[in-house]
């Protein structure tokens, strides 16, 4: 297996991360290393802290120094847009498109603000890049459509495409398959696998078990802000605490 090589330095290191909201501890001493090129599944019941963890990584929430290290750099003091430029992109659990724009304009925002040469590159060059991503995502036909007219699966793909337009090293997919039909789940899953094949590290949060199992090289299960299991998908699924907390047996 080429991806997720254990000998490489971790791309993302979460070190003893604790996040409290008032008296409520959303994340309790979470530590994990994500390796370059890894396909990482993140599961856990509702309210277990999955999205909080993502928000801490992408910068929506601030955390203590050195708790989030990306590519060898402590990024805990960086605002979200700088983290995006460093190579962390995400989609949202509830899609958050730019509603006043067309699909391709959504992607152009990413191109405009993440390429170091955004002042020199012409609008046409940005447009070509965005079109290439849309083609890869199977959204080329919808490039000029308003996002308000998209179906749920198209909206999910658009979010992934917008994240890809920032040219990430790490892509975090936050329940990109929620509310989709069986065949649509497969479509999005195939897309994510294709992206992983392009040596992008992917963290996938998902409730759809068969998708997580098919996708992940490693799975981590959170419950009440703590890691209760981490390892090979089959190991994690066999874990008694995971079955109790998550699968509800």
């Amino acid at each position: 297996m080429t991806a997720g090589d254990t000998t490489l330095a971790p791309l993302l290191r979460i070190g003893a991360l604790t996040k409290r909201f008032g008296g409520f501890t959303a994340l309790d001493n979470v530590s994990v290393d994500i390796r370059p090129g890894e396909r990482f599944g993140l599961i856990g019941p509702n309210g277990s802290g999955k999205t909080t963890l993502i928000n801490c990584i992408s910068g929506a929430f601030r955390t203590d120094p050195a708790t989030v290290v990306f590519n060898g750099e402590d990024i805990t003091r960086l605002p979200p847009h700088v983290r995006t430029r460093r190579g962390i992109a995400r989609s949202f659990q509830i899609p958050r498109p730019f509603r006043s724009m067309t699909v391709i304009e959504n992607l152009m925002v990413a191109a405009d603000f993440t390429s170091a040469t955004h002042l020199r590159l012409t609008a046409e060059a940005h447009r070509d890049q965005a079109m290439a991503i849309l083609r890869e995502m199977g959204l080329a036909a919808k490039a000029e459509a308003r996002v308000t007219g998209l179906s749920q699966v198209e909206l999910r793909k658009m979010e992934l495409a917008r994240a890809m337009a920032t040219r990430p090293k790490l892509l975090i997919s936050d329940e990109a398959m929620a509310g989709l039909s069986g065949s649509e789940v497969d479509e999005v899953l195939d897309l994510l696998l294709k992206l992983a094949g392009e040596s992008i590290t992917i963290i996938m949060i998902e409730h759809i078990m068969q998708a997580v199992m098919r996708f992940s090289e490693r799975i981590m299960c959170l419950d009440a802000g703590r890691i209760i299991a981490i390892g090979q998908p089959s190991e994690v699924m066999a874990n008694a605490r995971v079955q109790e907390a998550y699968l509800g047996t």
Partner: peptide
């Protein structure tokens, strides 16, 4: 972009 959605804009690289 930030008028449409401020968090999404940040996460798309908009300062």
């Amino acid at each position: 972009a930030l008028r449409d959605d401020e968090l999404a804009a940040e996460c798309t690289g908009v300062p």
